[in-house]
Amino acid sequence: MSEFEDWIGRNQTVTDVLEPARSNALDVALGGEGALKPGDPIPLLHHWLYFWDVKPPAGLGTDGHPAKGGFLPPVPLPRRMWAGGRLSFHKPLILGAQVTKTSTITTIKEKTGKSGTLVFVTVRHELDGGDGLAVSEEQDLVYREPAARTLPAPVPAPAPAVPWVESVNPDTVLLFRYSALTMNGHRIHYDRPYAMGEEAYPALVVHGPLQATLLMRLATANLSAPVTGFDFRGQQPAFDGAMLHVCGAPNADGAEIWTQQGEAKNMVAAVRTGAA
């Protein structure tokens, strides 16, 4: 990846106002009451609803993402996804406040896996709500070769017997709403012919950040101590057409949480409640 060394260390700074309507819309879409108001702390991970990167039609790739070669390096692999990340929560972000996000590309690494060449780009984000660092985040993006074969569709299965579990139907309406609220144009989440015909998925793909948000929602509903850290990693895609079980179990540090369709774990995560 020597050709992209110049991208390492690149940074950009953007600002946005955390208006409550967007966060309330997601809360309602997930079954909440949508009663958040200015001055309330934003639910954890709802900052992903803000800082839209809106491009004109000419600035989009065929997959619906912003075209390559802007802030992120133009990795010549066609498939790209959010693979995981690590977050620390230092202080609350407040709805109604103007927040500054500074993003820096920290690493670009090429690996070879069972599915061929993979390129991982890690971006560090720091969010400041006006009184110092509130959230620090490392985001792992993965670029992949075209799919060699279509993945199998998920097999519906009952929820596992674990301490915490909620079952969510990731139907087309929920996927559309989350795409709209995050200004995510990636066609694998709403364009079934594209997802199946071009990227060889068996159905629409459930957003990784949506799964992470469901996991955080489960954890904060069941933990008595404030969450100070969250690490998550996608293991295999989740799809519409089968219930998604959002599962968790408390431990000494916080909780282990995961999403599951059938017997397979889709996203695994750890929540921390100690010092950030």
Results as ranks from 00 to 15, higher is better:
Lys111Gln: 14
Lys91Ala: 15
Arg124Trp: 07
Arg144Glu: 04
Pro92Ile: 10
Leu87Tyr: 14
Gly132Val: 04
Arg144Met: 13
Arg144Val: 02
Gly113Lys: 05
Gly132Phe: 04
Ala134Tyr: 02
Leu151Ile: 00
Ala157Trp: 04
His90Tyr: 06
Val121Trp: 10
Met81Ile: 13
Pro146Met: 07
Gln139Gly: 07
Trp82Ala: 13
Ala97Ser: 14
Arg144Ala: 05
Thr100Ala: 09
Gln139Tyr: 02
Gly96His: 03
His90Glu: 11
Thr122Tyr: 00
Gly85Met: 02
Ala67Asn: 01
Leu133Pro: 10
Val155Ala: 14
Arg80Trp: 13
Glu138Val: 09
Ser88Ala: 14
Pro156Lys: 14
Arg149Trp: 00
Pro78Phe: 12
Val123Leu: 08
Ser115Thr: 12
Glu110Val: 00
Gly116Tyr: 07
Gly132Met: 07
Ser115Val: 06
Lys91Tyr: 00
Pro146Trp: 08
Gly69Gln: 01
Ala83Lys: 12
Gly70Glu: 09
Pro152Trp: 00
Pro158Glu: 06
Val155Arg: 11
Pro92Thr: 09
Arg144Ile: 03
Glu145Thr: 14
Phe120Pro: 05
Pro152Tyr: 01
Lys68Met: 12
Thr106Tyr: 02
Phe71Lys: 13
Ile94Ser: 03
Val135Gln: 07
Val135His: 06
Asp128Ile: 10
Thr107Gln: 13
Pro158Val: 11
Ser88Asn: 11
His90Trp: 12
Ala83Arg: 13
Pro152Gln: 00
Asp140Cys: 03
Ala97Lys: 08
Phe89Ser: 06
Trp82Cys: 11
Lys68Arg: 13
Val135Asp: 02
Val123Gly: 08
Gly85Lys: 01
Arg149His: 10
Glu145Phe: 01
Val99Arg: 00
Val121Cys: 08
Leu87Ala: 14
Val123Gln: 03
Leu77Arg: 06
Ile94Gln: 05
Ala147Met: 08
Val123Asp: 07
Ala147Pro: 12
Thr122Asp: 14
Thr104His: 09
Leu72Ala: 13
Arg124Asp: 14
Thr104Ala: 02
Pro74Arg: 01
Lys114Asp: 06
Phe89Met: 06
Leu127Tyr: 15
Gly129Phe: 08
Val155Ser: 12
Pro158Asp: 05
Val123Trp: 09
Lys109Thr: 15
Arg86Thr: 15
Val119Ser: 11
Pro78Glu: 11
